[in-house]
Design a protein around this nucleic acid. Structure first.
Length: 311
RNA sequence: GCCGAGAUAGCUCAGUUGGUAGAGCACACGACUGAAAAUUGUGGGGUCGCCAGUCCGAUCCUGGCUCUCGGCA
């Protein structure tokens, strides 16, 4: 099978479903290189708690967008998108298949739907001002201010979602344009083939729970302690990752280790549910595969059929 | 056996000066355009332990019973 002109493959699905292994095997079979679409793999030194691929796994197939930033660097959707589009072209130029793998639904969607993210770099000072304002008058009232300036944006941002409200106001105040107008969808720039991996939620939860214990035994606490010792602020976006924020609470003596474990499990379940909002079973663009029996062969066959134009 | 406390959603518990009930978690579903493993919205679910009494009306008051927990024997 030869690489198509603009074919890009994606492997999506909830955390702990088994994307990493599947993608590597897929890449080996079709001559692909892997671009991570996981907002937590970006950071160096955050390995155990993010279930990052092992160094051996990273060596078998070229991987990108992993370990590209220190934990105190702030990444974003737009930055991710820009960098990834560049990498896709690079891999295509080499005559290989780009395989985008990850569980960060927003990153995936932005790519597959061709989002034009508003050109407006976050303005921390402005955000802080808006945040203070929001706390004074209340999230609902701040949202009402937004409604005056941009009815459409106010419509798709929940009234109590102060963070989204602030971003919209930030963009409006800085650009003088409506946030809703800048929120453009260009449609897919490549011929995306989206593979969705899924398993019954109960099993998924069980796997995720097991993984939490593996992480704790595998040195999650000392990893977090190391990050704090190196001076990384627990309030950094990177440190808001599941597994990290809870262990920070434990290290600060606010909760016990067992409470931290329970919290991580709880937050992971909620995360899996939220991920399902981006990857829906009803989404006709996604080719869904149950993980049992292992779907590599079928997925390869479906892909081959697609290449031959039979689909 | 005696004394005390308790029995309310799947779990932990709050509550009703008597007018058939709530919160967190769990579970399910949704939003999202430069913080996204973030932030955020909605929903289903209860014969309020059992029986009797008082009352227009009992989950709440009274009596009995069953069970649980703690203390004493």
């Amino acid at each position: 099978m030869l690489p198509d002109k603009k074919r890009v493959i994606l492997v999506v699905g909830p955390t702990a479903v088994g994307k990493t292994r599947f993608a590597i095997e897929l890449a080996k079979n079709i001559g692909g290189e892997i671009i991570s679409a996981d907002s937590r793999y970006l950071y160096r030194g955050m390995d155990v708690g993010t279930a990052k691929p092992t160094p051996e796994e990273l060596n078998t197939i070229p991987h990108y967008m992993i370990n590209v930033a220190d934990p105190d660097e702030v990444w974003s959707l737009a930055a991710y998108q820009n960098e990834t589009v560049r990498l896709i072209n690079e891999i295509l130029d080499k005559g290989k298949f780009p395989i985008i793998v990850g569980g960060t639904g927003q990153y995936i969607r932005a790519l597959t739907e061709g989002w034009q993210v508003p050109e407006m770099v976050p303005n921390t000072a402005l955000r802080n001002v808006l945040m203070d304002w929001g706390y004074q008058i209340g999230a609902g009232e701040l949202h009402r201010k937004l409604a005056v300036l941009d009815t459409i944006a106010a419509d798709f941002i929940d009234a109590s979602n102060i963070r989204r409200t602030i971003r919209a106001l930030e963009v409006i105040f800085t650009t003088g344009k409506r946030f809703s107008e800048l929120r453009v969808k260009d449609g897919p720039a490549y011929d995306y083939w989206i593979i969705g991996l899924i398993m019954p939620r109960k099993e998924l939860f069980a796997r995720a729970d097991e993984r939490v214990d593996v992480m704790l035994k595998g040195g999650l606490v000392s990893e977090v302690k190391g990050l704090l010792d190196r001076g990384y602020n627990p309030l950094l976006p990177s440190m808001s990752a599941i597994g990290y924020k809870e262990v920070v609470l434990y290290l600060e003596g606010k909760i016990t280790l067992d409470e931290a474990r329970q919290l991580i499990i709880k937050n992971t379940h909620q995360f899996i549910r939220r991920q399902a909002n981006w990857f829906k079973p009803t989404d006709s663009r996604i080719h869904w595969y149950q993980m049992d029996p292992y779907p590599l062969e079928i997925a390869l066959r479906d892909l081959a059929d697609k290449e031959l134009g039979n689909t």
